[in-house]
Design a protein around this nucleic acid. Structure first.
Lengths: 121, 121
DNA sequence: ACTTGACGACTACGCCCGTAATCGATAGCT
DNA sequence: AGCTATCGATTACGGGCGTAGTCGTCAAGT
């Protein structure tokens, strides 16, 4: 699975949330958050098409874009890379780390407890 | 805190594990895993010095390098970035995801259970 | 003193990424 | 039939990163 860089990721998020969609529409939804011009968005769409992360249907003389890879799969790749690089491939130290650095609220911990209980079954 | 790219990270790992150390020594430890030439390692050391991630003591006419930033702090930054980007800043979904994708062994889950119990106290 | 070797500094260069303008074709309006 | 707006494709360009060669300097050996 191809690596998807930051800017392209944001385009994917739009299309994972709703698709298919034309370039114009994608650009409109990104504009508030990013300020990117339509031209920029088109470039990103093109690159994503080229690397197979998006597919397109032709509607008249324009494309309707939709994801060709599942968000789940991409997230899996990214998080695995991080865990490998930072924690020697072991997930537990990551959680311990998040806890240590105060990135887990009480609600998070409660939720984790439930999750872990579920997993242990 | 400056962002530390992949190749430079590997240099940091060496020095986090043992320091201070000369360029030659760093290169020798990296060689088996990376195959990088001494010149490449020197470049990376220079860049890390420039961005303040390393400090150096002069020993005769050469430098002894040592980390100027804690590994903990860098790891915190990286993992926060990932969690923000992929999981909307919430850590629990990350754990759920690791579980779903089978990246947690039974041992991991047991360990997590213990950790969570500890955190919940 | 002279050469040799090792050091850090500087330079190089191709690729990827973020950002965008421009181009050629075409659909639609007038 | 001609103009205009719009589409995707192509090209651009600065900066960062991965990888490495070269240069000026100085220490050490002979």
């Amino acid at each position: 699975m191809e690596r998807i860089p930051e800017a392209e990721w944001q385009v994917m998020e739009i299309l994972w949330a709703e698709s298919p969609m034309g370039a114009q529409d994608v650009a409109e939804r990104l504009a508030p958050a990013t300020g990117w011009s339509l031209a920029t968005v088109k470039t990103l769409l093109g690159r994503l098409l080229a690397k197979g992360a998006l597919a397109h249907d032709e509607e008249g003389r324009r494309y309707l874009y939709r994801p060709a890879v599942a968000r789940e799969a991409c997230v899996a790749g990214e998080s695995r890379r991080l865990v490998d690089r930072l924690f020697g491939g072991r997930a537990t130290p990551l959680v311990a780390h998040l806890a240590d650095t105060g990135q887990l609220s009480d609600a998070d911990i409660a939720e984790l407890a439930k999750l872990v209980k579920e997993l242990g079954k």
